[in-house]
Design a protein around this nucleic acid. Structure first.
Lengths: 219, 219
DNA sequence: CTTGACATAGAACGTATGTTCCGCTAGAAT
DNA sequence: ATTCTAGCGGAACATACGTTCTATGTCAAG
């Protein structure tokens, strides 16, 4: 009963339950689960389901057909809570220091804070995370204190993207629209009354991520 | 087979299915539906379920226990698509004209555009609507072209709220933090580098609503 | 080697559940 | 009055489904 040890089969069972429920609006039967993951015996499926209950990934109701319910633990971990994307709140963004990104390999399950956005507001779900902006130093990007910036880790930006860039010389992070112009790079503030920054040497800046969404909650 | 005519029983069945599924993670059985709405015969429940399928409120899968699925039609009509609040996109906000609010009595179902926000981002669900900002004339409120402003219709503002105000003399709408100061009203821009507006006569302004949320979608 | 925990397979069983058929009633249409 | 339909109740039926029991094989601990 080692905590947290899931066999490959059990992971596939969880995946199937999630997908099936999402597709059909009701959970699969034991035999349907068995057929999907290649288990011929209903008792084996039953056995593994009970294991998953012990691990806290499932709730079951006895003597109820399809009486399976994914727990919040799993739904939140996979980020598939219905139509809602759960975006981990991984930290805050200061103008005076580079963005601290979570390491790629370590899962973001640990983040207890998160914001939730419906799926249709974002095109891609991978490598998305949120940052809370502290301080008024990004007002030229039309982002103010307390705003939440949803970013995608993506180093392949294209002209017109709003990106978070770390300026090595100035030692600060800013949010700017970015444009490639010949050998130089132009960083254009969102505020149209402010002047752009021209970077001669691309090595002087480091694109930290693409800004997908800015959310400001006031009340 | 009159279109759209639902009996009281059929409405209660839909309500029960929705509530039961939300509570248990799987749909109710025919006998559970019967028990909840006071129908002793399974065939009668079955009959009404098929009626609801004909009306487009349900999908059913034959020979599948609990093979019931609420259609989008119903979910959207009730505004209960999981944990998501559906906020109708009722129009755009220009600096050069007052906010056009939808009439209170007419339902907002007609709006084909909408944004969806998870429930925990907003405290109150009543009288909430979204506006898309056109033009750069509200940059002093840190709101730029294309932003979506989620507002609550509420004329009882309190100090520190961000509100949409219509300035009669200037003939424009702005988003400002509002403060009562003695006999005058101070409208404070969100951008801290900009100066506030002092209104001597409260009749010169009209609070259109309280700003709850600003969303800026970039990619 | 023996033991015991773990994972699996197969079969039998009980029942929860959907389906079907028949009969009844009330009301509108003919 | 007769007919037709919508809506309801009851009972029988077939089966989809969860539960339980027995048996087999693996592998690490003793």
């Amino acid at each position: 009963m080692a905590k947290g040890k899931l066999t490959d089969r059990q992971r596939r069972i969880l995946d199937f339950i999630q997908e099936f429920t999402s597709d059909n609006g009701y959970p699969p039967s034991i035999r349907q689960i068995g057929a999907s993951v290649g288990i011929s015996s209903t008792s084996v499926v039953n056995y593994n389901l009970n294991r998953l209950v012990e691990e806290g990934f499932l709730d079951r109701d006895k003597n109820v057909s399809r009486g399976i319910r994914l727990t919040d633990k799993l739904l939140k971990a996979t980020g598939n809570l219905g139509e809602v994307i759960r975006i981990p709140m991984v930290g805050r963004i200061f103008a005076s220091e580079p963005v601290h990104l979570p390491s790629t390999d370590s899962p973001m399950f640990g983040a207890d804070e998160a914001i939730e956005i419906t799926r249709d507001m974002l095109s891609s779900t991978d490598e998305v995370f949120a940052l809370e902006v502290k301080g008024d130093s990004m007002i030229d990007a039309m982002v103010s204190d307390g705003d939440i910036v949803v970013m995608k880790r993506d180093y392949h930006w294209s002209n017109g993207d709003m990106v978070a860039v770390w300026l090595r010389d100035l030692e600060e992070t800013t949010l700017k629209y970015i444009y490639h112009e010949g050998n130089t790079i132009r960083l254009q503030p969102a505020n149209p009354t402010m002047d752009p920054i021209i970077i001669e040497d691309p090595k002087h800046l480091e694109v930290q991520g693409k800004v997908m969404l800015v959310v400001r909650q006031l009340a």
